[in-house]
Simulated scan of single mutants.
Amino acid sequence: MRRIGISTRLDAISGRDERRDALDARWAPLLWHLGYVPVALSNSLTDVQSYLEALNPSGFILSGGNDIGSAPDRDRLEKGVLDFSLERRLPVLGVCRGMQFINDYCGGSLVKVSGHVATRHSLVGRWAKDHGFGIVNSYHSQAILKDTLSGDLVSLAESEDGIVEALLHRTLPWLGIMWHPEREKVPSENDLALLKNHFNGE
């Protein structure tokens, strides 16, 4: 079975003098159902390349949580993931913050937006229509616009107010989506097909 490394949120726990790597528990059964072994990644190991070489994953998910710049150890880990994936041409799926991190890594930037936290909205564009994506969930206060999108990336779908909601690297198997497949009460068949096709190289 293919191992998929998943980046984790980094949380400081008030009153406990602890920092914790955290991951939505729904990711594991979602990936296991598709035939993958989910592996949560640690933000605390500094030799990221040796760590990833020992893990020997087939691909990665950069998950949601933590604004870019708010958790430097996580930023370092995810930069190492993209460096590793670039060298080996491994598939990467960026989800919400993860998609934003791909854009940041490739030289793009973010803007503040409103009306995209804890809501649902429509997607527009040929790719969204062809893949059956109509209404998706939304949990972000920062966003990528077409003029803040890296030139290495292409927009696949937007929201009706012009925010980039899905992107693809022009030459690498890196895909980004702003919605959260793991947060749906019943996993969407379209999301499941997207994940399977991406990590199987289809």
Rank of each mutant, 00 (worst) to 15 (best):
R3K: 15
S7R: 04
T8L: 06
L10W: 00
I13E: 09
I13F: 05
S14W: 07
S14Q: 11
G15T: 03
G15Y: 02
R16N: 05
D17K: 07
E18M: 13
R19Y: 13
R20H: 09
D21K: 13
L23H: 10
D24C: 07
P29F: 00
L30E: 05
L30W: 10
W32P: 02
W32N: 13
H33C: 13
G35D: 07
Y36L: 04
V37I: 01
V37G: 03
V37H: 06
P38D: 00
S42M: 00
S42A: 01
N43W: 08
L45N: 11
T46Q: 14
T46L: 15
D47T: 04
V48Y: 01
Q49G: 12
L52E: 01
E53V: 06
A54V: 06
A54I: 02
L55Q: 08
P57M: 04
P57I: 12
S58C: 11
F60A: 03
F60Q: 05
I61H: 10
I61R: 09
I61D: 14
L62W: 06
G65H: 02
N66W: 00
N66I: 00
D67E: 13
G69P: 07
G69S: 07
S70E: 14
A71P: 03
A71D: 05
A71C: 12
R74P: 14
R74F: 12
D75Y: 05
D75H: 06
R76I: 01
L77A: 00
G80F: 00
V81L: 04
D83F: 09
L86H: 08
E87H: 03
P91Y: 00
L93S: 13
G94L: 12
C96E: 15
C96S: 15
R97K: 13
G98F: 11
G98P: 14
M99Y: 06
M99K: 10
I102S: 07
D104E: 15
G107Y: 01
G107R: 01
L110G: 14
L110Q: 11
L110N: 12
V111K: 06
V111L: 05
K112Q: 06
V113E: 01
S114I: 07
G115T: 12
H116R: 08
H116P: 08
V117D: 08
R120C: 14
H121Y: 03
H121D: 05
L123M: 05
V124W: 00
V124Q: 04
R126G: 04
W127A: 13
W127P: 11
G134N: 13
I135T: 15
I135S: 14
I135Q: 14
N137Q: 11
S138H: 06
K146C: 08
D147N: 15
L149A: 00
D152L: 07
V154F: 01
V154N: 00
L156K: 01
L156M: 02
A157W: 03
E158A: 07
E158L: 14
S159T: 15
S159G: 15
S159I: 11
E160K: 11
G162F: 02
E165D: 06
E165V: 11
H169I: 12
L172M: 15
L172W: 07
G176Y: 05
I177Y: 08
M178A: 09
M178F: 09
M178D: 06
W179E: 11
E184C: 07
E184I: 13
P187M: 11
P187Y: 15
L192R: 01
L195Q: 10
L195G: 08
N197V: 01
N197R: 02
N197T: 00
H198G: 14
N200S: 03
G201Y: 06
G201E: 04
